[in-house]
Design a binder for these strands. Structure first.
Lengths: 215, 215
DNA sequence: ATGGATTTCTTGTGATCACAAAGCCGCGCA
DNA sequence: TGCGCGGCTTTGTGATCACAAGAAATCCAT
């Protein structure tokens, strides 16, 4: 069989599949318990089973997917204990990240955060759960990128990934009326250079968002 | 991510390769910068390239291996900033784990920890770096298992994994004279039920062990 | 019509192969 | 002697295939 001429020079096939699935999971576009098949993934991304399997294996290793004993793959349905753990991890890591970002947070960053916060409000008003989750993550990531701590950010994103399907389930059935108000606390603490206030605001935002996840 | 405690009766090929490489890396048996080949790994474990590639991809995703732009795979040589980040992560996560383990730490656990600590001293006296690293990790894991927090423990192990080759380089050229004395502080705090003391002891043990890693 | 057995289909697993790109070695030329 | 340069080799990538195990559908007997 001839190699199909792909115009993409840099991204390998498994990487495209991995990124595609990853963002879908992190943004909460796949609900918990949904089953996936390697051949289906391969057909969707136009590749064979081999890259699909590698991408799935990687996501399983990161806790974003669950591999049943028979090898079947699906999105995990988290227990309340697991959710509490992941929320605690978010609090630990993201508080540290925000604290490290504070000294480098200049006005341009704060402006961008306020802009993103406005987009969150738009998504809330439009009752768009996926848009809400995606923009909310963008808010946090924009702040944490300033921490210049890639290993910590990767850890935080791994936690987000594990919570993705569960957040899909939650925000699907809940109707927010406004953007999370702790984001305003975060921005205010950044403006004031108030580190204890920032830590408290980030911790509150993370735990408040996940307290309602535990049924 | 190795969450299930029971060994699978029929471990698949990629899982055997993954576990084999993982323990070798975590125990510091591979020094940083060492190159690996898929065919070599496959031959070593008696499998073809496919499971070897899946295992390598998984370890790359966990930060235990580095994939160069040309696809070559090797153990990473960490920068000082990265080491500092990982040390901070260890401090954050392991302090929390020890704190959660404290209420469940009974006498049998403390006895086991003291036994393991004795084995660490033996490894130090025998100038056995790999044995020292392995037993040291066993000390921490034994304590953290009591926290009943598998997601957090998995995160901690991922950090250990990333530090494995670097610890190999360090402990190879350093000659310890005694077991880490903060382990005695940890055991004392466990006996006394002293949570602040335990948090301080764990944090000290982690950061002290990694301060000398930054060249 | 219903429950159990059997067949069929689906799905994951791992080996193998063709191919491309990167490394490596040695030959030849200045 | 130093430096390209062309070929050979090594190595990763992804498609394809045979196989086994599980799930689903079908069929037969009561």
């Amino acid at each position: 069989m001839l190699i199909q001429t792909r115009p993409d020079p840099s991204p390998s096939a498994h990487d495209r599949v991995y990124r595609g699935l990853r963002t879908r999971i992190m943004h909460g576009e796949i609900e918990p318990g949904q089953a996936l098949t390697l051949r289906g993934i391969g057909k969707e991304f136009g590749v064979s089973m081999t890259p699909a399997r590698e991408a799935v294996r990687r996501l399983v290793a990161e806790g974003a997917l669950l591999l049943s004993s028979s090898g079947r793959v699906s999105t995990p349905d988290l227990s309340n204990e697991r959710i509490e753990e992941l929320a605690a991890l978010r609090a630990l890591i993201e508080v540290e990240l925000s604290s490290r970002a504070l000294p480098r947070a200049h006005m341009a960053l704060i402006d961008r955060l306020q802009l993103i916060n406005g987009t969150i409000s738009d998504a809330v008003r439009a009752h768009d759960p996926v848009g809400y989750i995606r923009t909310n993550l963008e808010f946090h990531r924009t702040l944490y990128l300033r921490a210049q701590a890639p290993a910590m950010l990767a850890m935080a994103e791994t936690v987000w990934l594990q919570l993705g399907p569960t957040m899909c389930k939650l925000y699907g059935r809940m109707n927010r009326t406004e953007a999370p108000h702790f984001h305003r606390h975060i921005i205010a603490a950044l403006k004031a250079g108030d580190e204890p206030g920032l830590r408290l605001a980030v911790r509150s935002d993370v735990t408040q968002g996940l307290r309602m996840l535990t049924t």
